[in-house]
Amino acid sequence: MNHPTCLAPHEAVDIHEVLNFKTLCLAKSAFMQGLVFDQELKALLQKDVQMTTQDIAALQALYEKAPFRSPVPESRPVPTLQ
């Protein structure tokens, strides 16, 4: 199967929307880590942060094939409280 070297514009927009959503999810999980006291929940949130970070990296690599690009911030949210 041929893999296109460039995404269609609608595919790029869809990936950009998913990137925005995953970034918001990452920020929420990172923030919530500082607010919870249950260690199991904190561990789940930490795992979610790690998995979401990997997902974002994979989506960014795919987004490189977009015919147009908007910059994706490199910074990642960190928990406000430890």
Rank of each mutant, 00 (worst) to 15 (best):
T23W: 00
T23A: 06
T23I: 00
T23C: 00
L24V: 09
L24N: 09
L24Q: 06
L24P: 04
L24D: 02
L24S: 12
C25G: 10
C25W: 10
L26D: 03
L26V: 07
L26K: 02
L26H: 02
L26G: 03
A27G: 13
K28E: 02
K28V: 05
K28D: 07
S29N: 07
S29P: 05
S29Y: 04
S29T: 08
A30M: 11
A30Q: 04
A30C: 12
A30H: 06
A30E: 06
A30F: 01
F31N: 14
F31Q: 13
F31C: 06
F31E: 12
F31R: 13
M32C: 12
M32P: 01
M32W: 02
M32D: 09
M32T: 14
Q33I: 06
Q33H: 10
Q33L: 02
G34D: 11
G34A: 06
G34E: 06
G34T: 10
G34V: 09
G34F: 07
G34P: 14
G34K: 12
L35Q: 15
L35N: 09
L35I: 12
L35C: 12
F37P: 01
F37R: 14
F37K: 15
F37I: 09
D38E: 13
D38K: 13
Q39V: 15
Q39D: 11
Q39N: 12
Q39E: 12
E40H: 10
E40T: 13
L41D: 02
L41V: 14
L41P: 01
L41N: 05
L41M: 12
K42M: 01
K42D: 01
K42S: 04
A43Y: 04
A43I: 02
A43K: 14
L44S: 12
L44N: 15
L44A: 13
L45M: 12
Q46V: 09
Q46I: 02
Q46N: 11
Q46H: 08
K47W: 02
K47R: 15
K47I: 05
K47H: 07
D48T: 10
D48F: 03
D48Y: 01
D48E: 11
D48K: 06
D48P: 07
D48H: 09
D48V: 04
D48R: 11
V49D: 00
V49W: 00
V49G: 08
V49I: 12
V49S: 06
V49H: 02
Q50C: 00
Q50N: 05
Q50D: 15
M51S: 10
M51D: 13
M51I: 07
M51F: 04
M51R: 12
T52A: 00
T52K: 05
T52Y: 01
T52C: 05
T53F: 02
T53E: 07
Q54P: 02
Q54H: 09
Q54L: 15
Q54W: 06
D55G: 04
D55F: 10
D55N: 15
D55P: 08
D55Y: 05
D55S: 15
I56S: 03
I56H: 00
I56C: 04
I56N: 00
A57E: 08
A57F: 00
A57L: 03
A57C: 01
A58W: 02
A58S: 11
A58H: 01
A58P: 03
L59F: 11
L59H: 11
L59V: 11
L59Y: 10
L59K: 10
Q60V: 08
Q60Y: 00
Q60E: 13
Q60T: 13
Q60K: 15
A61Q: 11
A61I: 03
A61V: 11
A61R: 12
A61T: 13
